[in-house]
Design a protein around this nucleic acid. Structure first.
Lengths: 145, 145
DNA sequence: CCTATTTTATTAATATGTTAATTATTGCTA
DNA sequence: TAGCAATAATTAACATATTAATAAAATAGG
């Protein structure tokens, strides 16, 4: 009567959580003792790639909820990693930009982070790596653009 | 000089986070207004499957850090969903077991949860679904047994 | 022009994630 | 067997996740 649920060892949500832990572990090691968290790293990465972004878009691309972004951005501004400016055309909005200091952090860690990516590509194989990204994209809920 | 990092839109960690959001959304909907969180649901699922477990094994199988489990288990005990008993052979250890009330919650929601699984299998296709689980397992860091 | 609605952002409250420090118990070993 | 390392669990401190409530600004309709 209760054979309906799969074994937790083949549960998709649990597998995703564990895989995320595995994928983030080397990045976490890299960021240890830098004062930059995983989320702050994601924000810097997105800003470095796209330049100036409004908060809503930034939250979406960095996969953060808006209230989290509010707090994290405040701390990053205090640290001098980003700037926040009101959009004068629509004063509800806010534009967030990476500072030279923030960009320097990215530059200083880009090589090591890239090695992490290479490590996973090698571990899975190029085909599997791309296939995995494609399959994950199918589960992606949100509007990316 | 900085072409080393992949676009954030093809970043494995971000893809994993977004996929997890997508995969958990229906479960989150199911649990809304029940007073049971995602993590509590995972704990109940694991306990329902394995019976009585020591805390360390439970934390591993439910993909929770130990300090999180400590807090969550305390609340679940207060709610009458689980019991915690000292291991008399090794008084450092603790055994955690699901109660009838906890099992009833699983039983009451198993059918709907199973439908969620079927939905994802259908959405991805059986082959892709299994392939995805296999690929995710390659990223899994931890000792499962 | 004015108000109801919508959008953007913040704040609040509670729960979890994460690392480090601490406590209690066990095991090992000189 | 006294003392020290290792293990299991808790606690502490801070950061993030999540949902709901609120505030401020813009917009659509009447």
């Amino acid at each position: 009567m209760n054979k309906k649920l799969p074994s937790t060892s083949r549960s998709l949500p649990i597998a995703l959580i564990r895989a995320r832990e595995g994928a983030m572990a080397p990045i976490r090691d890299m960021l240890a003792n830098t004062g930059i968290t995983e989320q702050q790293w994601r924000i810097l990465r997105v800003l470095s790639e796209h330049g100036s972004l409004d908060s809503t878009t930034l939250a979406d691309r960095a996969s953060l909820l808006f209230p989290s972004l509010t707090r994290i951005a405040a701390k990053m501004r205090e640290k001098g990693l980003i700037t926040q400016t009101r959009d004068e055309a629509d004063r509800r909005r806010q534009l967030i930009e990476i500072t030279a200091k923030g960009q320097k952090f990215i530059d200083d860690h880009a090589e090591r982070a890239a090695l992490v990516v290479v490590g996973f590509r090698t571990r899975l194989g190029d085909d599997n790596y791309e296939k995995l990204l494609d399959l994950l994209a199918l589960l992606d809920p949100g509007p990316r653009d």
